[in-house]
């Protein structure tokens, strides 16, 4: 059970981040929206987005200072797959108006029908993709 305490506590911090941004600034803590909105935004709107992203990048540094270790990041994909995946994630999150944070963490919490549909769709597609890659195509 302790193996799931860190995920649960980490999730709670992510939820607290979303609640803080909503209650203080009235904004949705959707990473793809905050990042994608940087392009073409007015200067005033750009500042808080950059501020959030600076904080986001400082998060793992703070984790390193507190815990003594960097969080594990082990990519299993080849560079061509990373490029294809990145293009799909970038284009798809903008077309679909959100990712795991905006639709998942924020959208589900405010019972948005769009977010429920989006989460069900991207979960199903991700699960199917992993199944095909790991158990279907190459085997």
């Amino acid at each position: 059970m302790t193996a799931y305490l860190d995920p649960l506590a980490g999730g709670a911090l992510i939820g607290a981040a979303a609640a803080l941004l909503l209650l203080a600034n009235g904004r949705i803590a959707g990473i793809s929206g905050i990042l994608g909105g940087l392009a073409g935004a007015e200067a005033r709107d750009r500042a808080w987005r950059l501020a959030f992203l600076v904080g986001l990048l400082a998060g793992p540094v703070l984790y390193r200072l507190v815990s003594g270790d960097w969080p594990a990041v082990g990519s299993v994909a080849s560079w061509p797959v990373l490029v294809l995946a990145g293009l799909l994630v970038g284009f798809g999150t903008r077309l679909g108006s959100g990712c795991t944070s905006g639709h998942g963490v924020c959208g589900l919490a405010r019972l948005s029908p769009r977010s429920f549909a989006a989460v069900a769709t991207f979960m199903a597609c991700a699960i199917l993709t992993v199944f095909l890659v790991r158990h279907g195509l190459a085997r």
Binding site: I31, V73, L84, A85, V89, T100, A118, F122, A126
Partner: peptide, 26 residues
Amino acid sequence: RLLAGAALFGIGWGLAGFCPGPALAG
């Protein structure tokens, strides 16, 4: 638009295991 975008995102997420937040923080 919403469903097509979510589908494309899901495929990309499943291919590499990265979504925008963790990738940026990483």
